[in-house]
């Protein structure tokens, strides 16, 4: 070791990131992945809205028709126009739930890319929030495609749909943050995820006022909607698209979504940190 005294001390080129910088690096990793693998998801991104609008907007819409009952529920607009912004929110919530389960567990357990990130200068919180950021961006892109498909079906009546899109992304982020926090605690996917989808995600998509107004539900079930982020998101998205929103209720829905997102993001930061520090 004697000769080592003469050797200059090497300097590392690595730097610890700022909080936002770290989040950005995680997003960049996912973007790299997407650039290489986008083809696999592109078809379903277009096909999914196509199928939903065909089945429910056109098919089911014909059944609903424009009778007095339907008109009372939709406020007089065609069913497709009434449904489309809600489908946008529902699709965001669903893909958010999916993107925050298996892929997140894989990052911890199978591919373990979060472990690789944590071995570098990123923190658990930056990794978790970066994952949320990426899911948000992806929902924005998929939602934009959804809007184009809606337009092709003639389901758009004005520029309010852009606000619907933003509301859908916010809804998705709230869902995503809560689900990703849950996934960070799952050791064995076994029944955890199927139970989540069966008992939380599917009921949420059915009873959040997507296909029919919540006030058509029996009074005992109605509170289910109030705790559902999707219902709050649907109310904003639909109100914006149809121009029927009122200030106070909309602010209320927005506040609920933001509160859920803050709660979820806080849990994500904590639980990712805990899991990565075994």
């Amino acid at each position: 070791m004697a000769d080592l005294a003469a050797v200059p001390v090497p300097r590392s080129t690595g730097l610890a990131p700022t909080v936002l910088g770290g989040i950005g690096r995680v997003v960049e990793h996912h973007w790299r992945w997407y650039r290489r693998n986008w083809r696999a998801t592109a078809v379903s991104t277009v096909l999914q809205p196509l199928l939903f609008l065909l089945a429910f907007g056109v098919g089911f819409g014909a059944l609903v028709g424009s009778g007095p009952n339907a008109a009372a529920a939709t406020g007089g607009v065609p069913y497709l126009v009434w449904l489309a912004p809600a489908l946008l929110a529902m699709s965001a919530a669903q893909s958010a739930a999916f993107e925050s389960t298996y892929p997140v567990l894989s990052g911890f357990k199978w591919q373990r890319i979060y472990l690789a990130m944590a071995a570098g200068p990123l923190t658990g919180a930056q990794i978790g929030l970066g994952v949320l950021g990426w899911i948000g961006l992806k929902m924005l892109g998929a939602g934009a495609v959804y809007v184009l498909v809606i337009a092709a079906f003639g389901g758009i009546t004005g520029p309010g749909i852009v606000v619907s899109l933003l509301a859908a992304v916010l809804t998705g982020l709230a869902v995503s943050s809560l689900v990703a926090a849950f996934s960070a605690t799952v050791e064995n996917e076994g029944t955890a995820f199927s139970a989540l989808f069966r008992f939380v995600v599917i009921p949420m998509t059915l009873f959040s006022g997507t296909f029919f107004p919540v006030d058509r539900l029996p009074a005992v079930i109605r509170p289910l909607a109030w705790v559902s982020p999707l219902w709050h998101g649907t109310e904003i998205a639909r109100g914006a698209a149809l121009g029927t929103w009122r200030l106070l209720p909309t602010l209320g829905h927005l506040a609920v979504l933001l509160a859920l997102l803050v709660l979820g993001a806080t849990l994500v930061a904590r639980l990712f940190t805990r899991r990565l520090a075994a």
Partner: peptide, 15 residues
Amino acid sequence: LSVRENLEIYGRYFG
């Protein structure tokens, strides 16, 4: 990711 992408993205973590 590709072999090269793994190296590049890892370097990006370090700013």
